[in-house]
Design a protein around this nucleic acid. Structure first.
Length: 587
RNA sequence: GCCCUCGUAGCUCAGGGGAUAGAGCACCGGUUUCCUAAACCGGGUGUCGCAAGUUCGAUUCUUGCCGAGGGCGCCA
């Protein structure tokens, strides 16, 4: 059990003995570290409900505490705060228990959930730009976070591969190469095995055709028709779709791998295409889906709505399907597969869409009440003018280019460091990539998920202060110590009571890990982890300055410190890994 | 018009019913015969957008207003 849970239980017992609900015993880290290590505020809130004096109640709680030997001091402050400081022996015992636990004290979740994280995947045909950065790394981080917390988790890219963009790309290719067999409805032979286009071709074609469809209604109509034909199984279009799909996936697998993003499932809208018609039929038979202006819709408004809620569109008036349809069908599939919680890591601007889909899913019984559906929204990356970021040339910044910029900056920093001179080129390249990506990911993830933030290249290419590399550097320092200690034949031993402030501070920090993980899971926010990881690294760096492990003469103390930094390294590595940040061996 | 998100230090951002609201950057200064100085130590700044309300206590919750961004049936 974590230290905070242990203390909370002890105080809960004492509150119960005083006739108050045990939940009042919640113990949290002190907001005034110079006064105490922990505090319990329960007496304040409980006293007024019970009609008692807060300070008297706090005193009664203190009187009712058992095992008083673990406390170094207990006192009542101000209107009724209980300030708690524990003994160094108690701290050491908790740290030792954490060091011995394979999960660093992170408890099992209750209940354990089967979770699917939908990263709001990219459309086919588009190479990734900075806009995709947030969905990818926030989604990846949340997936890892839930896994670390003990849940069963799958990450699904959920590609946008069955909607209007495909129809648009079909008519655009036909415009360029009308003689290809895919466009001949009467063609009965074998379609070519090789794709007629590369992803670069698709990337070029896409904005052109989107623009034309916007300005020319007849082109938009053709794209709609092509989408409809594809969705209804026209063989040439299906064959072409397969090519589009394969070249897109091949490229995206490379991009995501370079970014360190690993999907368990490479599904997409097309995965559920067989379920679309039956789903619409079913909802129509149930009377839930109705015809409206030629389209089929589900009315999702509630009496409690303060404003009109537009219906969810299941089909266009031509009978073709939209992403609402595929999202609903995908949800249907996920519930069948036993997922308890679905997280949609998608741009906040799609909030209304998800509200509609979730409501329709509840109404239709697709997702019964216990199944959680959440739009884990994230904000936009803006330029200095407050609107979505564009490069100086007015285009989008490609993700691959951004990664090169940060890697080059890290390499330049490495060149300045004398210590890196003798590293093999291969290792230097790897370090540059790890550090650059570390800066990039930490910089992005340390913003709160939902807030829009201003794109600042300097933030992603600076490696000092509150940055990813600061954390990596802390971990590297520990690896160096452990390496040298090993060479000197030193071995870690039991963690003993701390005697130095910086040592005590580090232990106090490390012991908070289980609650930090819980909090991050609760609010689905990686920045809870970045904040804590920075504090851990800072506390370690202070300890490092104050306590010279290899030079320490007392072998008991030295062995204890080796265990302490080993635990620190495990915690840091766990946090960085959850953030998707790698730790080099040296830097 | 309605709905959603946001408004915190010069800049970029955290935080959150509790005591004295934090960090990085920037600026000034200090630390290296010692485990990696991508580090550490010191130096100061706030009408927490404005106004009411709930509360023993509000920057945090509620409402209204102002400002920014976004969304509102056949795009995703």
């Amino acid at each position: 059990m974590s230290l905070l849970k242990d203390l909370s239980q002890r105080f809960g017992d004492a509150f119960e003995a005083a006739g108050i609900d045990r939940s009042a015993g919640l113990v949290v880290p002190s907001q005034r570290p110079e006064l105490a290590q922990y505090q319990c505020n329960g007496a304040l809130a409980a006293a007024k409900r019970a009609g008692r004096n807060p300070r008297d109640l706090a005193q009664a709680v203190l009187d009712g505490l058992t095992d008083r030997g673990i406390y170094a001091s207990l006192d009542i402050a101000g209107p009724g705060f209980i300030n708690i400081t524990v003994t160094d022996e108690y701290l050491a015992g908790n740290a030792q228990a954490m060091e011995e636990d394979a999960r660093c004290g992170i408890g099992a979740p209750d209940p354990k959930l089967k979770v699917i994280v939908d990263y709001g995947g990219p459309n086919m045909s588009k190479s990734m730009h900075v806009g995709h950065l947030r969905a990818s790394i926030i989604g990846e981080s949340l997936k890892r976070l839930f896994r670390v917390a003990g849940h069963e988790v799958d990450g699904d890219i959920h590609m946008g591969d069955w909607g209007m963009p495909i129809g648009q790309l079909i008519i655009e290719l036909e415009r360029h190469q009308p003689d290809l067999p895919y466009f001949d409805a009467d063609f009965t032979g074998q379609y070519p095995e090789d794709s007629p286009v590369t992803l670069d071709d698709l990337s070029e074609m896409y904005p052109v055709v989107v623009d034309r469809c916007k300005n020319e209604p007849e082109e938009a109509e053709r794209a709609r028709q092509a989408t409809f034909d594809l969705q209804n199984g026209r063989p040439g279009y299906l064959a072409l779709w397969r090519h589009y799909h394969d070249v897109s996936v091949a490229e995206q697998k490379k991009d995501f791998a370079a970014l360190g993003v690993e999907f368990d499932l490479w599904r997409g809208e097309s995965t559920v295409h067989d379920r679309l018609a039956p789903l619409v039929d079913r909802l129509t038979e149930d009377g839930l889906a109705v015809e409206s202006d030629g389209a089929i819709v589900v009315q999702v408004e509630k009496d409690s709505d303060k404003t009109e809620m537009p219906p969810l569109l299941l089909t266009r008036s031509d009978g073709s399907y939209l992403y609402s349809t595929t999202d609903l069908a995908t949800l249907d599939q996920r519930v069948e597969e036993g997922y308890d919680l679905v997280l949609y890591v998608v741009d906040a601007r799609q909030g209304l869409h998800f509200e509609q889909v979730f409501r329709a899913a509840r109404l239709a019984g697709i997702a019964p009440e216990p199944v959680g559906m959440e739009h884990t929204a994230f904000g936009t990356v803006n330029g200095p003018d407050g609107t979505p970021f564009k490069t100086r040339e007015g285009g989008v910044l490609r993700l691959a280019d951004l990664m090169k910029i940060v890697t080059d900056a890290a390499r330049a920093r490495l060149d300045e460091a004398e210590i890196a001179q003798d590293y093999p080129d291969e290792e230097r390249d790897r370090i540059a990539r790890q550090v650059g990506l570390g800066a990039l990911k930490f910089g992005d993830l340390s913003n709160h998920r939902t807030s829009n933030y201003i794109f600042d290249l300097d933030r992603f290419t600076s490696f000092e202060g509150k940055t990813g590399p600061y954390l990596q550097y802390g971990a590297v320092r520990i690896k160096s110590i452990l390496r040298r200690a090993g060479e000197a034949g030193l071995t870690p031993g039991p963690i003993v009571a701390p005697t130095v402030d910086q040592e005590r501070g580090l232990i106090l920090r490390l012991l908070l890990l289980p609650e930090v993980i819980e909090r991050a899971v609760d609010v689905r926010a990686p920045n809870v982890l970045t904040e804590y990881a920075y504090e851990v690294a800072t506390d370690f760096n202070r300890f490092y300055e104050a306590c010279h492990i290899l030079r320490e003469e007392d072998p008991i103390r030295q062995a204890s410190w080796l265990s302490l930094v080993d635990l620190t390294l495990r915690v840091l590595t766990l946090l960085l890994d959850t953030l998707g940040i790698e730790v080099p061996e040296r830097m």
